[in-house]
Design a protein around this nucleic acid. Sequence first.
DNA 1: CTTCGCTTGTGAATACTTTCACAAGCGTGC
DNA 2: GCACGCTTGTGAAAGTATTCACAAGCGAAG
Lengths: 213, 213
Amino acid sequence: MSVRISDSTVRRLSLYLRMLRDLREQQVALVSSSQLAARTGATSAQVRKDLSLFGSFGKRGRGYDVDQLAATIEDILGLSRTWRVGIVGVGKIGGALLGYADMLRRGFEVVAAFDTDPAKIGRAIFGVRVAPLADVERVVREEDVEIAIVATPPDAAHDVAQRLADAGVGAILNFAPIELHGIDGVPVRTVDVVLELEGLSYLLSRPPARETD
Amino acid sequence: MSVRISDSTVRRLSLYLRMLRDLREQQVALVSSSQLAARTGATSAQVRKDLSLFGSFGKRGRGYDVDQLAATIEDILGLSRTWRVGIVGVGKIGGALLGYADMLRRGFEVVAAFDTDPAKIGRAIFGVRVAPLADVERVVREEDVEIAIVATPPDAAHDVAQRLADAGVGAILNFAPIELHGIDGVPVRTVDVVLELEGLSYLLSRPPARETD
DNA sequence: CTTCGCTTGTGAATACTTTCACAAGCGTGC
DNA sequence: GCACGCTTGTGAAAGTATTCACAAGCGAAG
């Protein structure tokens, strides 16, 4: 039965879920696909198609039950639990992520942090003690780190990612400006701020699309 | 002549460019589409197709001239110049971006920063003086901010983005965990760390794809 | 000057995503 | 219990993106 679900569908599911949680908080009971679409930048047909890939959750003529749909998407995305996250590299970006309260609120708890800088090792930052990178294998095992965030300089990133994969981490979120691939069978996603800026640069450099053309 | 260029193509062009700049530094003169593909996670056919959208830059039998192709892609992406960037919200993430040296090295200079916190206003962080958010219109004009980074709490983000657009900013990179749309004709990209983590959570929650299935 | 190895550029084919459009169905009101 | 307004679920159509596969062409070697 299981179809391959595209990345963009998963991304949209996250957005739907975020909106559903808001609605849940506001005690709204029902929501239609077009309401979901309006605030997530999708179309109503897309919302329905996305959801239909996993089952039939709505009531014709009424819409979707907010509580139930939220719970369903949480299940689909694996968000009915808290994930244990480790951060490698407690520099500017790694440090900012360590203290990013939204992560914990949304189900990702930072349980370990690593660095090579002796000035940082041993200190606790936002309640997490920074361990030496050398101990990464042991700490990943002991703390049961499931998802790792790589926030090292680019030249260290590939090596670190491979060590994390070998140590048993299940997925990696990479902030180093380098393409990480061929890391075992561990999925890697890269967040690259400058890449995003370059995309905007491209748009700004095009002759602005005028109506009359 | 101008075709619509997809987002993914632009993204890949950025990756090619990054690799070409490395090669340029190492004095490599020529590169083939398959070499470009290998380190960027694309296929060689895709590299050639991407480039062919803009013209014919290679030499059959030899590959692409590194210097010339780098310059061409820089032109396409609008990266032969430095862009003036403003950051709104000097919290953990905004502050980290302020000091992110890679941005400047790759052509994005932070020329303005804003916050509402009186403790931060007036202080210079990484050489940039923090202005009160109230002055955003004036400072954007005076400093000629072309691209703005929104790193405010989510409930302030939409408002801030609209003010930036009205003040003449040409593009927005949003770090607030909220979908920003309907901001005039100004392109907006959102970087959402938790969204990426949720995507990984989905992958980790699927029954691992085995060969024998 | 010709052959050979290699690589580009690109139509055609395939795969994937999104949009369309409408029958099916739910619940309210009469 | 019937009709009506509204919304889902979904095949089919349209639109995009990627991969295939090969002729065209470059340069080196002989």
